[in-house]
Each structure stands twice: as C-alpha cells, then as structure tokens.
Amino acid sequence: MALITCQDLSLGYDGREIIRGLSFEVSRGDYLCIVGENGSGKSTLMRTVLGLQPPLGGLIRLGDGLSMREIGYLPQQTPIQRDFPASVWEVVLSGFEGSCGLRPFYSRAEKQRATSNIRSMGLEDLTRRCYRELSGGQQQRVLLARALCATDKLLFLDEPVSGLDPRVTTEMYRLIEQLNRENGITVIMISHDIAAALRYASHILHIGDTVFFGTRDAYLGSGISSLFTGGGDEQ
C-alpha cells in the first residue's frame, strides 16, 4: 500500500483553482521529484498534502501506517529566520515539537537523536553557533537535521538547493540521496533543476500545462522533459 495517495486533487488558494484532477501516489522508498514551471502550483501542492491548506477537491490518503506526525519538512526559508537569534541546537531540537504533545520539555532520547542527526549532517562543530550566522548550505543542513528529528519515514523538501552554489548543491543532493538509499527515507522534493531531478529521482511528477506522473524512465520516454528543458522556445 502507498504511503500517500492523492486522487482527483484540485488545489489553489483564495478560491482560485491552479490544478485540477491530479492523481498520484508515493510508496515507501520512492524518490519523487515534483517539477514544473514557476507558478504551476508546486509549493501549493506540497502545502496541501502537508495539511497546511485545504484542497479544493479530491482526496489525500495516508497509508502504510503513516501518521501526519511522522512527516519531516524542509520549507523554503522565511524572512523571519534571517534575523532570528537561535542556536543550531535549538533549531534542530525543535523538530521534535510535533511529537511532544503537551509535554513541555524534550526527553533524553530525543536529545540523543538530535545529536546523532547533527552528526550525520556534519554539523557537530556548529552546534552552539547562531543559526543566522551560518552559510546558506549550512543552514539548509541544519533544517534537514531538524526535519530528520520529525521523521524517519518521509521527507518533504521544497527547493532544498535554491540559492546554493554548485559545490554545496551537489553536496546537498548527495546527502538527500544517502538518506533515501541508506536510511530508507522516502523523499518528495520540489525542484527547478530538471537535470538533477532526472539524475536522482525514481519518480517524476510534472505539473503545469502538461501533467505527467510516473517513473523517471517513462518520463524520459514521454518527451515532456525535452519541452521543459528546451526553454524559451515555442512549444
């Protein structure tokens, strides 16, 4: 059974419909890339599946024993975070908040897991540093470590490499691939970078004027990708 099944989904905001009749499913271990032009509704789709905004129509079903509290999320950075006084440790630990319920403090086990997530992201030297003073790539790794505190099953990543330089971008992709392959974490990622999507993803969801959902190979065979990467020309 699939982790997430979306059936005949319509979405948008303020009553304006962007996408209609969208169906796809994500199974355990998948690496799904959501691609599409700017304004095609990629972030809206992710926010809807995460329950941050209601769908205009259709069904979103969680399966395979997945609960909403076992989902990790790497959102795009907000302006608030740019001058927020918070240490790396505080940010990473806040990933557990969703599973805390009313409990006011973090347990020892949670602190240990936070430490190991910080280590696996290569941040152990930065634990006490201030989040806003880190480089873009370091900040993304902090947020990834936080997302790992919230889940060991399913990660949603909203353009995790935007604004990063090529070397850090490659490093970020490698980390995500490692989480998918070695830790068995299912990944759903929004990406502008079609080349990277085709390189790493097992499945592609293309939204916009043409809608496609299927495996990477089927996508390559469909010819939609060449339209998309062709760029600038008449379709």
Binding site: R47, L50, G51, L52, M68, R69, I71, G72, Y73, P75, T78, I80, Q81, F84, A86, E90, V91, L93, S94, G95, E97, G98, S99, C100, P104, F105, Y106, L143, R146, A147, A150, T151, F156
Partner: peptide, 18 residues
C-alpha cells in the same frame, strides 16, 4: 519550546503536527 517552534518556523511546526 512550543512558542519557539511556532515563532521560528510556523509552516514546519504545523506540518509536523504542532
């Protein structure tokens, strides 16, 4: 801790069940 989580990143907090 909840006030911190909600202030620092409301979207993340909401998505993970806060």
């Amino acid at each position: 801790h909840k006030i911190f989580a909600v202030t620092f990143d409301e979207s993340f907090a909401a998505a993970t069940g806060v």
